[in-house]
């Protein structure tokens, strides 16, 4: 089945089984390796992408869900103003340890900054509640997102 969607601002079309997991479409067909597979069950958030402006676990979504939709992956977000700001904040607080979970954290944090952006720790914790960091560096991750919210507020 031919399925069209917008991927990181480019129109794309793929002819594949509509049940193919979105993560496999992104990694194997489009070579977008920023989207990581951790648990493969939606519980760890390493595969988080934005589908129609909402963060979703791409390991439990299918290609059909992207039909005529819009996808933004960590690679696409890294090129945006807010994405760059977040990456700078993660860097400044030394939040990144092994790095495997970070594309997912970037996507969920980007969505929080776009839709709310209040420097509110409790809200940030809920926004990032689908993402797990097994290096357990949560405090610095929250600090980074708080910092990004404050910097965005000033700009």
């Amino acid at each position: 089945m031919k399925i069209k969607f917008i991927l990181n601002k480019n129109e794309v079309e793929i002819d594949a089984n509509p049940m193919t997991r979105l993560i496999d479409v992104l990694r194997e067909h489009f070579q977008l390796l920023g989207t990581k597979e951790g648990c493969g069950e939606g519980e760890c958030g390493a595969c988080t992408i934005l589908l129609n402006d909402k963060p979703v676990a791409s390991c439990i979504a299918n290609l059909i869900h992207a039909e005529n939709g819009v996808i933004l992956t960590a690679e696409g977000i890294a090129k945006t103003k807010i994405g760059t700001l977040l990456i700078d904040c993660f860097d400044e607080t030394n939040a990144v340890q092994c790095g495997f979970c970070f594309p997912g954290f970037l996507v969920s944090s980007y969505h929080y900054l776009k839709t709310d952006g209040e420097p509110n720790l409790e809200k940030i914790k809920i926004a990032l509640s689908g993402n797990i960091c097994r290096c357990t560096g949560y405090q610095k991750i929250f600090d980074s997102v708080l910092m990004a919210c404050e910097k965005l507020d000033l700009s």
Partner: peptide
């Protein structure tokens, strides 16, 4: 219920 990345699907 679950987490935001599951609630959205």
């Amino acid at each position: 219920f679950a987490s935001p990345i599951i609630q959205n699907l």
